[in-house]
């Protein structure tokens, strides 16, 4: 279970980072959202920090550490607001520069 979790966090992070570095501005925004999911998954998995209690308790009576889940909730809300705003921002950029290629969005380069 641990190894699957670790691999999926790493894969999400890698995909997100790759998309973030693409030239298309929409792809880079989506990359941000994928990285935020990687971070959230990581925070979920730290619920088992003792190796005793897990974020997803199996047996009845086993309690999970609730704090990382509270952290994830906060992080989700914040990244949702940020993602919505960045999409609006991209709409303005696309309308103003008539392109979605980040190499063409360079009005400030001097």
């Amino acid at each position: 279970m641990e190894i699957i979790k670790a691999i999926s966090i790493g894969a999400l992070f890698g995909i997100g980072l790759y998309q973030l570095l693409r030239r298309n501005v929409i792809r880079s925004a989506i990359g941000l959202s994928i990285i935020s999911n990687a971070v959230n998954l990581f925070l979920l998995s730290i619920g088992a920090y003792d190796g005793v209690v897990k974020a997803y308790a199996k047996a009845i009576g086993q309690r999970s550490d609730a704090l990382p889940q509270a952290l994830i909730l906060t992080a989700i809300v914040i990244s949702l607001g940020g993602f919505a705003f960045v999409l609006a921002l991209l709409y303005v950029i696309a309308a103003r520069y008539r392109t979605g290629d980040s190499d063409e969005v360079k009005g400030l380069s001097h």
């Binding site: 941000l32 925070l43 992080a75 921002l89 991209l90 103003r96």
Partner: peptide, 22 residues
């Protein structure tokens, strides 16, 4: 008129910073 471009650049890099903080 380049406000949105600057805002986008800042948002991208500082969101990466926030994830790194998390």
């Amino acid at each position: 008129r380049y406000g949105p471009e600057a805002a986008y650049k800042y948002f991208l890099i500082s969101t990466v910073a926030s994830f790194s903080l998390l």
